[in-house]
Design a protein around this nucleic acid. Structure first.
Lengths: 263, 263
DNA sequence: ACTCATTGTGTTCATTTGACAAAATAAGGG
DNA sequence: CCCTTATTTTGTCAAATGAACACAATGAGT
């Protein structure tokens, strides 16, 4: 086992090598950041990383390999943090303000001893493309990357100060998600295999930040004819046990294709 | 007046200089393309350019100045082609396929004698960010750019073969436009100051590619309370003259802010 | 004055929405 | 074991919306 000092050394060595090789491996001046969203039955959460060299938090991100499509690079980034091979993700915006890495140099002062090639790489102007991903939170094993020591789920109302414009990126992702909510397969990608109607409704209430009528929500979803009703929930709650539901995936995706209409 | 040979020489000299200076002026590896849309009372049209050196058509586009925001570069591009200072435009997607400039080298073979710096610029991998703009077609004076000799409005169903993935970019713009139609100020940006209800309806039918019920459309729009009714249309048509309408801009934008609900 | 294509307004019926109430159900406490 | 309680499920009903169609008004041309 390595002690902290060794780990730190290893990190910096790797970071040096990483930035050194970046110019040859990656497209210049562009990065990708992923807003990875999960739902634990109570709240929407986003996967965040904490930098080793500072107390600052950030979104998972990375660069684009010269020989691959944009989507492939993003898939690699999300897979590396979550362990998930199959996932739903979608591009939503390119962030191109000219001053968006103004604060980065502050954060990267710890890397002053970078070679000039590496220094040049980290100090160029970056534009970044924002993606959001919807994942089953219980299937994820969060893994930090080269520059971070913590990777964990954070509820949307408990997000700490983030690097650069990452808070803005999260906000834009959520706005985008809300606008697409009518034709986006958000349920099938965020809920576990089997779920109660309350969980389903709460998911929409979390995203929309507004209460919905219980009876009306239930009737509407059942009428869509996309749910399979199973037997009763096991014990646990001290009240009437609800049914467990499961998506009829064929019918569900058929509805999504026709673009209508959950809310 | 210069003859064609001279113009061609001038073009190539400028193109040389342009590409030569590009590395210093612009961000590497990224371009912007604009789907500029207008409505002539009959059809949605898109502003296209025809290359001088080939019979290939393309979207207006350009590169991003190193010191400016993305949006500023796009505004400059659209303003240069249309002459418009104020306009509505919106980013909709970043196109990042690794093979998206595969055909470009074919098209640019005419520029073989470029200096190595210029050659390196045009042959790098480009990702491009797609924007769409909504403009008043009657206010536009189409102007070709350095590399093109024709700049004109083309109806959507008469688009010739386009360079690279530009057709895909147009399709994506229209899909995006349709999805936002409920909360997008499309009418105020595409229709002339005064318009008839038929024109207004036809605009939506063009975008949606589907017929709408005349009576219902009219009643719905009037009920939104965003229109000012003027006196009768002058002569011309051989039938009942329709009213002319104008947007009550304050009320219109108020509705747009609240996000509801044209269709 | 009459025709006619088009515009503006009405009517009708089915469907959806919103708000609320009632019935059903399981767990826990006496 | 019966009753309470919290929660789920289904029901009701008035109001709003949507879709399809009908009819009246208008103004240019014959």
């Amino acid at each position: 086992m390595s002690n902290e000092h060794n780990e730190s050394l290893t990190l910096e060595t790797n970071a040096f090598e990483y930035f050194e090789a970046a110019k040859d491996r990656f497209l210049p001046g562009i990065s990708a950041d992923a807003v990875i969203l999960g739902y634990d039955g109570q709240h929407i959460k986003v996967l965040l990383l904490k930098a080793q060299v500072d107390d600052i938090w950030m979104l998972p991100g990375g660069f684009i390999e010269k020989e691959y499509d944009l989507d492939i690079a993003v898939h690699r980034i999300v897979k590396a943090r979550t362990g998930l091979e199959e996932l739903y993700f979608q591009q939503f915006k390119l962030f191109g303000k000219s001053d968006r890495n103004a604060h980065k140099q502050e954060h990267l002062k710890k890397f002053q001893e970078l070679s000039s090639a590496a220094h040049e790489w980290v100090n160029q102007r970056f534009i970044t493309v924002g993606y959001f991903a919807l994942v089953h939170i219980e299937d994820v094993e969060p893994k930090p990357d080269l520059f971070t020591d913590i990777c964990e789920w954070v509820a949307l109302d408990q997000i700490p100060p983030l690097i650069l414009d990452h808070q803005e990126i999260i906000d834009a992702a959520l706005t985008n998600l809300r606008r697409q909510l009518n034709y986006l397969p958000v349920g099938i990608n965020l809920l576990p295999e089997r779920f109660t109607m309350s969980q389903f409704q709460n998911l929409y209430e979390e995203i929309l930040k507004q209460k919905l009528d219980r009876g009306n929500f239930q009737r509407k979803m059942l009428k869509l004819d996309i749910l399979i009703r199973h037997e009763k929930l096991k014990s646990g709650g001290a009240h009437k046990a609800p049914y467990l539901y499961e998506f009829d995936k064929e019918k569900y995706h058929e509805k999504v294709r026709n673009g209508i209409g959950f809310i």
